[in-house]
Design a protein around this nucleic acid. Structure first.
Length: 154
DNA sequence: GCCAACGTTGGC
DNA sequence: GCCAACGTTGGC
């Protein structure tokens, strides 16, 4: 099975690439996804897949680093926790609705690739990230796009 | 802070 | 199953 490529969005005020690097084993579980399409993509993520880490709602918005899938989709425990803001009452432990994966820090890009630069690069014009109205927090990326981002960020 | 673009919810 | 109302995302 060929390696796949993905992009994960996060607001750095919530969880940044630096937070990931500082996490235990430089690894975290990606909880809180509550969008079905994003969830379905997450379920397709395989161990070893490479992931672009994108900072949203900040200045500047940009791809800031790379991480890697180290654990494939499993039940997101926050859906069962009434005290968690991601609590989802209709989800039951024997029938989870939401899932998460574990990702591990790989590297930070020397130069973050800003949304502005992505939009300006003809080779990246098909990225889901810049398609009109795209709000997905988990999305697939083509290999050539992944390589192009890394090149632009080196 | 604004608001366009979406997704979800719930009455009918 | 339709669709209005509402909530959220995220760039600007």
């Amino acid at each position: 099975m060929a390696k796949k490529y993905w992009l994960l969005k996060s607001e750095p005020s919530e969880f940044s690439i630096d937070d990931l690097e500082k996490s235990k084993n430089k690894t975290t579980h990606w909880d809180g996804v509550r969008n079905y399409q994003a969830r379905n993509f997450m379920k397709e993520m395989k161990k070893g897949d490479q992931v672009l880490f994108y900072h949203s709602s900040t200045e500047p918005t940009a791809v800031v680093g790379v991480c890697e899938v180290v654990k494939e989709a499993y039940a997101d425990h926050t859906q069962f926790d009434p005290d968690d803001k991601h609590f989802f009452p209709s989800a039951k432990p024997d029938n989870p609705i939401w899932f998460m994966v574990d990702i591990k820090f790989v590297k930070k890009l020397k130069n973050p690739v800003t949304l502005q630069k992505i939009k300006a690069n003809p080779k990246l014009k098909n990225m889901k990230l810049i398609q009109k109205g795209s709000r997905l927090s988990v999305m697939p990326v083509e290999k050539n796009e992944f390589d192009e981002i890394l090149k632009a960020g080196s």
